[in-house]
Design a protein around this nucleic acid. Sequence first.
DNA 1: GTGGTCTAGACCACG
DNA 2: GTGGTCTAGACCACA
Lengths: 134, 134, 134, 134
Amino acid sequence: MHLEQRDVGSFRFLLDLSQPIYEQIVQQLSGAIARGDLDLGAKIPSVRELAQGLRAAPNTVVHAYQELEREGLIETRRGQGTFVTTSATVIHEFRAKLAQTLLNQFLQQMERLGFSPDDVRHLLREYPKEGDRT
Amino acid sequence: MHLEQRDVGSFRFLLDLSQPIYEQIVQQLSGAIARGDLDLGAKIPSVRELAQGLRAAPNTVVHAYQELEREGLIETRRGQGTFVTTSATVIHEFRAKLAQTLLNQFLQQMERLGFSPDDVRHLLREYPKEGDRT
Amino acid sequence: MHLEQRDVGSFRFLLDLSQPIYEQIVQQLSGAIARGDLDLGAKIPSVRELAQGLRAAPNTVVHAYQELEREGLIETRRGQGTFVTTSATVIHEFRAKLAQTLLNQFLQQMERLGFSPDDVRHLLREYPKEGDRT
Amino acid sequence: MHLEQRDVGSFRFLLDLSQPIYEQIVQQLSGAIARGDLDLGAKIPSVRELAQGLRAAPNTVVHAYQELEREGLIETRRGQGTFVTTSATVIHEFRAKLAQTLLNQFLQQMERLGFSPDDVRHLLREYPKEGDRT
DNA sequence: GTGGTCTAGACCACG
DNA sequence: GTGGTCTAGACCACA
């Protein structure tokens, strides 16, 4: 999928308040890239476009884009715009590493509450079971 | 188990630097209560004692205790000190609710990376598998 | 050496104009750390102090400090200040890696001008020889 | 060596993305002239030809050519095209001056890391030694 | 007091 | 038009 002009406005699904805006941009975009919702090399919205769409300051978007570039997920080309990396490997490794980190953190938190990995497996078996999604 | 005076110093297992100190106190204490490592109604260290033991500012410990009190996990009795709640129900519900929240958050994060709950179950089956614990 | 209050003002040896200010801060501080001019764990000037001393915006200093933290050369502790890392290993590896990178870049540039590594060795033997230091 | 029409396309060895394109053109061409890979007075591609060959904007090539002309390395003759300077002296001085500048900059950077010129000589003696080429 | 985030502008280099 | 850097403020979380 390519981001068309008309998609920009729809990025307004962010705006959580309790989390830094730039962090939310990072998570949404890195998620979209990791899931493959954005093609390799696809152009993403310009800093100004996205800032306007989110009603955020341009600097906030810049902050997010720089973090994504540091991860290697996007590339910026002066005067041209910002693009998803063309390396599938980078994306794959990012996804795998982040998943492992999230899993470890989660299990560690559960362990602190007295749930063993086996307890967690059991909980997961009875999922879904809508509790409060926070 | 009761926390004796001499136990206070051993709380120095905290101090992560990369995380707010008050947060770490909250998590360690709420974890100990949820796991049952602290008896119902047990006395916990005074603000001053704990602050000294952790070499933290008293304000920081106050902040943590207030958060724990808001959850109902501890009670402060003027002139007597601070104690673990005597209600097993409160603790049980805290544990269950927090676990559900953590699980939901985790699955949501994994979903953002393109892992379905089934994928997660599968990952969990092959656990443990040391990645980078962050 | 510890940075005393009175040292802060002397940081005004920066201000190059042709280079981003935050970059110059990064280079000066990382250099001081790499050379061992700053002790392990030493406190460095607060964002506001340094910003004032350099007559720069606080954000500019923040930018520099975040980059240094990303390299692992400094640690920031909310509410306490910013400190040189306590890991000699991190510093040593930073120094070695950066030196290697600089050497490679330099030789590559010289090669583009038609100087072989042997030519460079020869040039270096007749050094110093004050040309224009830019 | 003369640049023939068919050579233009082969200039596509540029395109680094992380560096300004006009800068890369300047460096490649000035390098080729300094090394003697381009004859004195040789014709170099027109702005349009090179821009097409590199799939770059004509403005970008113009920018590069202006910089090379400022250094005296190339000359533009209205209606005839652009040519390498016919002065061997200019080229020689350019090469010598740039080499001296690069050497000084390099030694200054190394000094900032705590390496004396002698340390650098020593490092150079053990070269090559593949580190990360960045 | 500290650092973290954000705004709403500005100017510059690049294409 | 693009992104990169910077300013001079602001508010918040933390110690």
